[in-house]
Write a protein that binds this DNA or RNA. Structure first.
Lengths: 250, 250
DNA sequence: GCTATTTTCTGCTAAAAAACAGTTTTTTTC
DNA sequence: GAAAAAAACTGTTTTTTAGCAGAAAATAGC
């Protein structure tokens, strides 16, 4: 519930034109026509969020779509007695606030895991972009369909895996989404034990215990929140019995 | 693993033109131009699947998209030692085989829960339809985005709910998807205890036990596979503590 | 309509996971 | 750099869930 000037008034122009944006993964940059890129550049809002701030809250009215220009975000949903569930993790080029049309409210909230720069496009602009950029609409459809498939697979894994397996799967997912540090090889994201628990549907104690096990088995090295996967193949072996599609999930 | 003539050669023409199809929920009928409806009517394949038959198997190559004209289908994924997981349930107007483009394989299989009639459109036709019907592409994008949101919510529930809660949620979902019989008020779908277990991520014994509890508490009436919800509100109360969005899930 | 087969139910036991509690370590704040 | 606060760790207890087994009921086959 942190307040900052950007939340109250998250409408700031970027000095950089969409055409010159460093984020090559942005759907707008990739699939909108040059003409439209200019239009979108004018109507978009660029804002900065400090670590731990809400980009939007669960229950907020939907005004448009958010594109992560640079940063790391967790998409959360409030659960039983203050318990949070992390629905999804997102980083550079990812989209937040699916289905930014109509007068509905967000079923989830979005909180930054570290300082992040986010572009915002309101419903009207997005709608115009859809009408005038069939390629953009098509690619977004393909993106959602791929995301749906991935989420359906995760649903299956979470329903049938043990704690140990879920935590192993989580570590591989974190590697896939955020990558590893080039210098020391540790995961490019620092989550608390509680956040890993919120992600896997267990509790912080269990995560702590299991990570200690993994370390004793030589699968990982840990230094506080920084975790390094020493043997990804061996970690994958833990969940291999579920016959999951490596290309699909990781 | 049943074999029938339709599986080997599921290419049969329907006597009914797409324009006159009784399924008003079909995306093609709703959002393609009249001209394109004629083209699609010519290139689609209409086939019949008896109860328990596979429409496609996990790992099959993707050749196109399936539209359920009439029937009930479970989308499944094989798990640990013969255990199945039901990823999703589908009925009239629903789409099977997301992302029917490219040379990938299905991450899931589809099995009919009862006799069903299914339309099939191959990749090339679907692609042509996308290019020439922006409205169709747009609506499909919206559909996937809504499905994604629903699946993300389900992911959250399954991660944090107890067995009792999961089974309660499942019953309400079944009511939402298949509706209730007008005559006796029972759910319009007959799943085995094992299938309910595959849907909720538990086992048949647990489901049996919990349904007996629900019956003793006056929440449901059951007669074999036919289940009747006697007090939907009381069932919802079981999961109300998870603060789930009633409109979103049910 | 009877028999065989499958499904469902229910009690019991074993295993897994959650909850609690207290200690240690790390991080934050002044 | 010390004190306070937060996070992480670890042992123990309690609760929940899974697995097994056998009886009862329902369904299918002849």
């Amino acid at each position: 519930m942190a307040t900052n000037s950007n939340m109250a008034n998250p409408y700031r122009k970027s000095d950089v034109h969409c055409m010159d944006c460093s984020n090559q993964l942005c759907f707008v940059q990739q699939f909108c026509s040059p003409t439209w890129l200019g239009i979108i550049n004018e109507c978009r809002n660029y804002s900065f969020f400090r670590k731990g701030e809400y980009i939007f809250h669960e229950g907020d009215r939907i005004f448009g779509l958010y594109f992560i220009q640079q940063g790391k975000v967790k998409v959360v949903s409030a659960g039983l007695n203050d318990r949070m569930h992390i629905v999804r993790l997102a980083t550079d080029g990812h989209i937040l606030g699916h289905r930014g049309l109509g007068a509905e409210t967000y079923p989830v909230g979005a909180v930054t895991l570290e300082d992040s720069w986010v572009c915002f496009l309101d419903n009207a602009s997005i709608n115009d972009a859809f009408i005038n950029n069939p390629k953009f609409t098509y690619e977004l459809m393909m993106f959602y369909s791929a995301e749906l498939r991935k989420t359906e697979m995760r649903l299956r894994y979470l329903a049938h895996m043990t704690m140990r397996e879920k935590i192993a799967e989580c570590l591989l997912c974190l590697k896939k989404i955020f990558g590893e540090n080039k210098e020391d090889g540790s995961l490019n994201v620092a989550l608390s034990r509680q956040e890993i628990a919120d992600l896997t549907g267990t509790n912080a104690e269990q995560v702590s215990r299991e990570l200690t096990c993994f370390e004793n088995e030589g699968l990982i090295a840990k230094d506080g929140k920084r975790i390094k996967l020493l043997d990804s193949n061996a970690i994958f072996e833990i969940i291999a019995c579920h016959k999951l599609n490596k290309e699909l999930v990781f």
